[in-house]
Design a protein around this nucleic acid. Structure first.
Length: 280
DNA sequence: TTCCAGGGATATA
DNA sequence: TATATCCATGGA
């Protein structure tokens, strides 16, 4: 993708490979807002502003080098899309709809908390819970609040998590905070994806689907296919072996898409969540 | 009022 | 290994 960093901002020249709305609305991230075509996003402790100007996308950030990494700007999405295209009309339609999506490289701890909260929940409510969490515990960065550090999180008890609306997930969050501060190594680089998945699933509130989201959005592991309510509905349209078991579905899909699985999943999730299930 | 949301933990067979 | 039930909350 063609882009340049100039005067503390990033200019992107290929709008087909960078669409702020699709990147943010596709369900991978929750701490953002939009007003008059300007998208504001908070990642860990940095803030970015996205908008388009003429034929360019602009990223203004409190740390442009972090933003370059976060938005995964060095990755060639035309290669990903061409690898996924032409083998299934359903996926082709989803890629066309979601063109300009990029998988963000989010902070692992923030991703773990975000997706524990996401379980059996809806996106507006997930956003609200995370916003209150950051407002209550995170550093005031002057206009926005950073995601709390593990040390800051350790001051929260189960009642606190209930008070911000986490519901029955409060105990999961409390327990996971303790694990992350004691016997859990957040660095999973030395592990295979399946071993890393198993490790993440040892956290309370992290099952297979949440683990796959954490691997994809927090660790850049694209050889996973998170099975949520939408992708389970889409599965029968692929002509793969019939099953009702989401574990088997994910295996069949990752066997098929390999290290492009996460991208395929994201195009499909976004397309079907936005448009409903269209079977024709 | 009931259903649903980027599901997981637990009990049971 | 596979299925059933419960779980907080708020918007549709």
């Amino acid at each position: 993708m063609r882009y340049r960093i100039l005067n503390g901002e990033i200019e992107i020249f290929d709008l087909g490979e960078f669409d702020a709305k699709h990147i943010l609305d596709c369900g991978q991230v929750f701490r953002y807002s939009e007003e008059n075509g300007i998208y504001k996003i908070i990642a860990k402790n940095s803030f970015s502003c996205l908008y388009s100007y003429m034929d360019r996308a602009i990223i203004q950030s409190s740390d442009v080098l972090k933003a370059e990494e976060y938005f995964d700007l060095k990755r060639d999405y035309s290669e990903i899309k061409s690898a996924l295209s032409g083998q299934n009309p359903i996926l082709d339609k989803a890629i066309e709809f979601g063109k300009g999506i990029r998988i963000l490289r989010q902070d692992p701890v923030e991703t773990i908390f975000s997706f524990i909260i996401s379980a059996n929940n809806n996106i507006p409510r997930i956003k609200g819970i995370l916003e209150r969490l950051c407002r209550e515990l995170g550093d005031d960065m002057g206009g926005y609040f950073a995601f709390p550090t593990l040390e800051q999180l350790s001051h929260a008890d189960e009642a606190f998590y209930r008070s911000i609306g986490a519901g029955y997930r409060a105990a999961y969050l409390k327990n996971t905070t303790k694990r992350l501060r004691t016997d859990f190594d957040i660095d999973l680089r030395g592990l295979s994806t399946m071993a890393a998945r198993k490790t993440l699933m040892s956290l309370t509130g992290v099952g297979g689907k949440v683990a796959d989201c954490i691997l994809l959005f927090g660790y850049g592991r694209t050889d996973v296919f998170p099975m949520d309510v939408w992708t389970k509905r889409v599965y029968p349209l692929f002509g793969l072996p019939e099953t009702t078991n989401p574990v088997t579905m994910a295996k069949n899909l990752t066997d098929r898409f390999g290290h492009y699985s996460g991208y395929a999943q994201q195009y499909l999730y976004y397309y079907y969540r936005e448009n409903g299930l269209i079977t024709k």
